[in-house]
Design a binder for these strands. Structure first.
Lengths: 193, 193
DNA sequence: GTCTATATAACGATAGAC
DNA sequence: GTCTATCGTTATATAGAC
């Protein structure tokens, strides 16, 4: 499963990342992590204080990765509308859901300020980034001056996060795509009144 | 906790509904259900085949309740826009999340067609209801003919479901409200181009 | 219908040998 | 740094008395 040269602590973090994405925090057991990482009980408690500590390391890395991915499209070329469209349409494994957003449904994550912090910060920063792009679009006359950047940014992010919910409920990415399509049709600069 | 006259099986279902909402399926144990229902081990396995069977009864009831609540506002008075606004702005315990939508992040729910079915059906029927209202609005000239009812309906539902995610991440309902506000501003019939 | 007793496995963590 | 052994608790379910 794992090639030589990857450290045990590295394998533990990567396995935890996968399991948190698939099963959430409550649904992920140390035993499952150890099996996937091909590591023994002792290794985990040597490198990490326990399940919450290991999960924190995993969540931080996933959060960092998600922020980078988002910035990759939002900071790309194109008009404000095009960059938001690129964000909404970027390749996604829709049925797997959002590795960060899904954690908000985990009671133990929400109960812990430390575990919730990277989730909150990640979504918040992407939201701020989108809000700025909307304001940019207003300055350029691409979006109506009446639009509130912060509010539109929340709508964009919510459409994505909620799209995952609809898709997983139906077992098909179609509802996610429909939601994105609907939002883009409302947002389109040349939308008929 | 429970007044006389409420049957044990009733208390079991209600307790399960609460716990599924708070902690999801994976995070809810029979023991926790029994304690909350003030029932013994034997009662639960007398009335239900096991945890999945009890959960199914609980989910079905919650699904039914949610559909009725949605129909209550979507079938209310007002123009199509006003009815959609009423749906988006209806009173919600935002930080608790959606009792049906949250189940889509539960691996054991998604893995079971039987448990997923009521979740899927509920969201699908609300979506269809909203899609019809959008089409109505198009017929009446309140919405642009270019809008796709199905897509807009998915956007509306996704904004709500995603709004819960953003709110729970930040520990405040503000992001939910912002997302709704943003969507309504895009949807408003008198929106400036 | 409800109770207690019991069972098997998993959970999350610690101890101490190597 | 990793391993095995062990711990006390919980998860989920069954058995059988009342």
């Amino acid at each position: 499963m794992y090639s030589e040269g990857v450290s045990t602590s590295e394998r533990l973090i990567e396995s935890t990342r996968e399991l948190l994405w698939e099963r959430g925090y409550v649904g992920t057991s140390p035993k499952a992590i150890l099996e996937r990482a091909e590591a023994g009980q002792g290794s985990m408690y040597h490198h990490f204080k326990g399940k919450p500590d290991l999960a924190l390391a995993a969540i931080r890395r996933t959060a960092e990765e998600l922020r980078a991915t988002a910035e990759g499209v939002l900071g790309g070329p194109g008009t404000p509308y095009e960059r938001i469209e690129a964000y909404l349409r970027r390749e996604r494994d829709v049925l797997r859901g959002c590795p960060i957003g899904r954690l908000t449904m985990d009671p133990d994550i929400i109960a812990s300020d430390e575990l919730r912090a990277p989730v909150d910060e990640t979504l918040d920063r992407i939201r701020e980034r989108i809000a700025g792009i909307v304001e940019e679009g207003k300055d350029q006359g691409q979006f109506a001056p009446s639009l509130d950047g912060e509010a539109i940014a929340a709508t964009v992010l919510a459409t994505v996060q909620g799209g995952y919910v609809l898709a997983r409920a139906s077992g098909s990415p179609a509802a996610f795509d429909a939601g994105v399509r609907g939002l883009l049709s409302l947002l389109a600069p040349d939308r008929p009144a």
